[in-house]
Amino acid sequence: DTINITLPDGKTLTLTVTPEFTVKELAEEIARRLGLSPEDIKDTHNGKTLDPSLTLAEYGITPGSTITLEIK
């Protein structure tokens, strides 16, 4: 299953994830792909900052969802 990550420059990154991924694991994968530190990444969905300890499923993030990435 894939989700879309909207980057600060407007580009989109597509990642393969499972509903059990935590937001922290997602940030780590994004950081790895972009050459950043996971601590520099802030993920938001529907205007809410995502708690790193919760899973994508707990936020109702499903395949095809879009998450907005902010760099701290």
Rank of each mutant, 00 (worst) to 15 (best):
S65R: 02
Y59R: 05
Y59A: 15
P38Q: 06
D51Q: 04
L13T: 04
G47K: 06
N4R: 11
T18R: 07
T6W: 11
D43Q: 15
R32C: 10
Y59H: 14
T22L: 04
V23I: 11
L50F: 09
P19A: 07
T14R: 10
R33E: 08
L15Y: 01
T68S: 12
T62Q: 09
I5G: 02
K42G: 13
G35H: 08
S37L: 10
I41W: 09
S65P: 00
D9K: 05
G47L: 14
D1I: 15
T12C: 09
N4T: 11
D51F: 04
T66I: 07
P38L: 13
P63V: 07
A57R: 13
T22G: 02
N4E: 06
T2Q: 10
P8T: 10
V23Q: 00
L50W: 14
L34Y: 04
A31S: 08
L50V: 08
G47P: 04
T44S: 13
I30N: 00
G64K: 01
I67T: 01
T18G: 09
L26C: 03
D51C: 08
P19K: 07
G10C: 10
I41G: 02
E25N: 09
L69G: 00
T68K: 14
I61P: 01
L15T: 02
K11T: 12
D1E: 07
G10W: 02
R33L: 12
H45R: 13
L7P: 01
H45D: 07
T12N: 10
D40C: 15
L36S: 07
E70M: 05
L69R: 00
H45F: 15
L36P: 01
A57C: 07
S65E: 04
I67M: 03
E39H: 15
I41R: 03
I61W: 10
E28Y: 08
L69S: 01
R33M: 13
I30W: 00
P19H: 04
L54N: 05
K48S: 09
T16L: 11
K24S: 06
R32K: 11
H45Q: 10
P52W: 13
R32W: 06
K42Y: 15
L15H: 01
L15P: 00
L26I: 03
N46H: 11
N46T: 13
K11R: 12
T44F: 14
P63S: 10
P8E: 06
P52C: 12
S65W: 05
R33K: 08
T6S: 13
A31Y: 08
I5W: 00
G60K: 02
L7K: 02
E58G: 03
A57N: 06
E39F: 15
S53Q: 11
T44D: 07
S65N: 05
E58Q: 06
Y59G: 07
K24Q: 10
T22H: 01
P52D: 11
K42T: 13
T68P: 04
D51K: 05
S37Y: 13
N46E: 08
D9N: 13
E20C: 07
G35P: 01
K48H: 11
I71A: 06
P38D: 05
K24E: 03
Y59P: 01
P63W: 02
E29L: 10
T68D: 07
T2D: 05
I30V: 11
T66M: 05
T44W: 14
I3M: 02
I67E: 00
D43L: 15
I5N: 08
I71P: 06
I61G: 01
G35D: 07
T16W: 10
E20Q: 11
E39Y: 08
T14L: 10
P52M: 14
T66V: 08
L69H: 01
K11A: 10
R32I: 07
D40T: 12
T14N: 07
K72H: 13
F21G: 04
S37K: 12
T22R: 03
T55P: 06
T18P: 05
G60C: 07
H45Y: 13
D43A: 15
I61T: 01
L34P: 00
V23H: 01
K72E: 12
A31D: 01
G35L: 04
R32G: 05
L7T: 08
L26R: 00
P63Y: 03
K11V: 11
P52R: 09
P38H: 08
T16E: 12
Y59C: 15
T6G: 07
E29P: 00
N46F: 15
G47S: 06
E29C: 07
L26M: 07
N4Q: 09
E39Q: 14
T14M: 09
T55S: 06
T62M: 12
I61S: 01
A57S: 09
L36I: 14
L56G: 00
L7E: 02
E28T: 08
T62A: 08
L50K: 03
N4D: 08
K42P: 12
T55H: 02
E28H: 09
G60N: 04
K72F: 15
T22K: 04
F21Q: 10
E70P: 08
L69A: 05
T55I: 03
T18L: 06
V17S: 01
S37V: 11
T55K: 07
I3F: 03
G64W: 00
S53D: 09
K72I: 14
P19C: 04
T55F: 02
L50D: 03
I3V: 08
V23P: 01
T14F: 08
N46Q: 11
I67L: 08
T16C: 09
L56I: 06
T6M: 14
T49P: 11
E39D: 11
Y59F: 10
T62L: 14
K42A: 13
A31V: 06
I61M: 03
P38S: 09
P19N: 04
T44Q: 11
I5Y: 00
L34D: 00
K42N: 09
P19M: 08
G35E: 05
T44G: 11
T66W: 06
L69N: 00
D1W: 15
F21K: 06
L69F: 03
G60R: 00
T18E: 04
T44N: 09
T14Y: 08
L26A: 03
K48G: 09
H45S: 11
S65G: 05
K48V: 11
G35S: 05
L36G: 07
T2K: 10
L13V: 09
T55L: 04
I67Y: 03
L36A: 07
T18V: 05
D1Q: 11
Y59V: 15
P63G: 08
A31K: 05
K42E: 10
L69P: 01
L50R: 04
T2H: 10
P19L: 07
S65I: 08
T62V: 13
A27Q: 12
G47R: 05
T55N: 03
F21H: 06
L34N: 01
G10M: 03
A31F: 10
G64A: 02
K24N: 05
I41K: 02
T44R: 12
L56R: 00
T22Y: 01
E20K: 08
L50P: 05
P63K: 03
L69E: 00
L56C: 04
N46C: 14
T12L: 10
T22D: 01
L36V: 14
T18Y: 10
P52H: 12
E29S: 06
T14A: 08
N46S: 13
V23R: 01
K48N: 10
D43H: 15
E25H: 10
I41D: 01
A27R: 14
I67V: 09
T68Q: 14
I67D: 00
V17R: 00
G64I: 01
L50C: 14
L26G: 00
E70A: 07
E25P: 01
H45C: 13
A27N: 15
I71W: 09
T66C: 13
L7D: 02
E20A: 11
L50N: 02
D43T: 15
E58P: 00
P38R: 06
T68C: 15
A27P: 00
R33T: 07
